[in-house]
Amino acid sequence: MTDTLLAVFYRDLVLSRRIGGGGSLAIIFFLGLVTIVPFAIGPDLNLLSRIGPAILWLGAFLATLLGLDRLFQADHEDGSLDQMLLSPAPLELVVLVKCLAHWCVTGLPLVILSPLFGLMLALNGPTLGGVTASLLVGTPALTFLGAIGAALTVTLRRGGLLLSILVVPLAVPVMIFSVSAASAAASGTVSFLTPFLILCALGLASFALAPIAAAAALRGAGE
């Protein structure tokens, strides 16, 4: 079974590299968003550094949503999903592995590049560290929560918009605690660890529960 899951992981990485689009597109979108904000609100460095963490997080959230609609849809359209249903490996674990592969392609590059992009928003060292740490823990949670939406909209041809509507409410707690963790790291007056640990808990809960929900939605998708 481990072989099967590794094969799914490897296949998704190879596919995203050969087809392109997904990962690099999300990064360019993220970069575009972060670049345009200083132009939109003007060259006020204090204001920028205050709202910087929130901007980075919004950018990462939208960039994550961008690629999610194809997470299961591509496999549904060409019949690969049927083959996965016939595998002895539980669908829940297959979903989990697909989410991890998707995060490695879209989420991880965002996390790695966020300190660089943070410089453009006049963030100082501790804030950059806080934002990056919160993105590292928070973006997998967004991917897992998004997988529920992706599984529910798998049969819809233009499911992307509905997916966003479904996922936004689920993502609110992640958003609140990640931005407060980043702000805490910036101000230094409030403990960074408290919101960060709650964010970790949210990440672990979505890691454990979202694949079950998404797999149930995929099983029902045939009806």
Partner: peptide
Amino acid sequence: YVGHLDGLKSALTARENLQFGLTLSG
């Protein structure tokens, strides 16, 4: 199961598709 949809990934070679099918089925 071989249905109307062939369950193949266009970006992968025939060998890779079959290898994946094998790993999936055991």
